[in-house]
């Protein structure tokens, strides 16, 4: 029997969550504030959203960011499935420790180091900096996260299902694609979402590896934030939060349904 939470336990959880959510709530609330000042409530208004949709530069950045996010998340998820399969199943092979080491090192590596080193790679390879260099860099950054998420799910997958398929004459890759993949699909979807979100969010690596014509949304937000608080940023942030929250909750609900 587990003891119930004490008053102290409840208080720390509630305070902790309040700390995590307060800034987000304030941000969303002020995106609907008619006044430009944060301390003054000028009534409910959607004027910042209207202003946002007239800002073509901002919209162009949103478009670049979404494309980078979709392509890099897909790349990272495919690589993540392969890496996770190798880490969970390939108990014997030698490169396993090295691969795991590489994955965890990417996970904690400060972004400035990753950004700088990727930039030097692209310069050395003579690749023009722009859309594709950012996409490749984001796939590298998020590969570690997709691997960890998919690996956690794959570790609890009953391998005998796949073995049964193979005993019935199914080639290994086909057994994986037809038997395992559908079962772990919610985790794969969660991994993709996570990679997409991280890509949507990244400022540092994009700044290092991007070139003219491929200014991502975080890069534009950053240059505007440095100039001061602009209510339009609240509006675009609220839209982003809404987009991601919808996606996350959808994946969560699908997972819950699968379980029951």
């Amino acid at each position: 029997m587990r003891r119930g939470p004490s008053v102290f336990n409840l208080a720390s959880v509630i305070l902790g969550l309040a700390f995590l959510y307060a800034p987000i709530v304030i941000l969303v609330a002020y995106s609907f504030n008619a006044s430009r000042l944060v301390t003054v409530w000028g009534g409910f208004s959607t004027r910042w959203y209207a202003a946002l949709f007239r800002d073509e530069q901002m919209l162009a950045s949103v478009w670049v960011t979404l494309r980078v996010g979709v392509i890099s998340a897909t790349l990272a998820t495919v690589l993540g499935i392969l890496a996770a399969a190798a880490l969970v199943r390939g108990g014997g092979f030698r490169g396993r420790t090295v691969l795991a080491g590489g994955v965890y090192a990417t996970l904690v590596m400060p972004e400035v180091i990753l950004g700088l080193s990727l930039l030097l790679l692209f310069v050395a390879a003579g690749l023009p900096r722009g859309f594709w260099t950012v996409t490749l860099s984001h796939a590298t950054l998020t590969l570690a996260y997709t691997t960890v998420v998919i690996q956690a799910r794959l570790a609890t997958f009953d391998i005998s299902l796949e073995e049964a398929a193979q005993d019935l004459g199914c080639p290994p890759w086909k057994a994986f694609a037809l038997v395992t993949l559908p079962v772990i699909a919610p985790a794969v979807a969660a991994a993709w979402m996570l990679a997409f979100t991280l890509s949507l969010d990244d400022l540092v690596i994009a700044s290092f590896t991007s070139g003219p014509g491929a200014t991502t949304l975080p890069m534009r937000l950053y240059s505007q934030v440095r100039l001061g608080v602009d209510p339009k940023i609240n509006a675009v942030s609220t839209l982003l939060i809404g987009l991601v929250a919808t996606g996350v909750i959808a994946v969560y609900l699908v997972q819950q349904r699968k379980r029951t």
């Binding site: 941000l27 969010d201 937000l221 940023i233 942030s237 982003l240 939060i241």
Partner: peptide
């Protein structure tokens, strides 16, 4: 899952 840059901006 919500943007890190945005949360710091908040």
């Amino acid at each position: 899952w919500t943007s890190f840059l945005i949360r710091i901006y908040a």
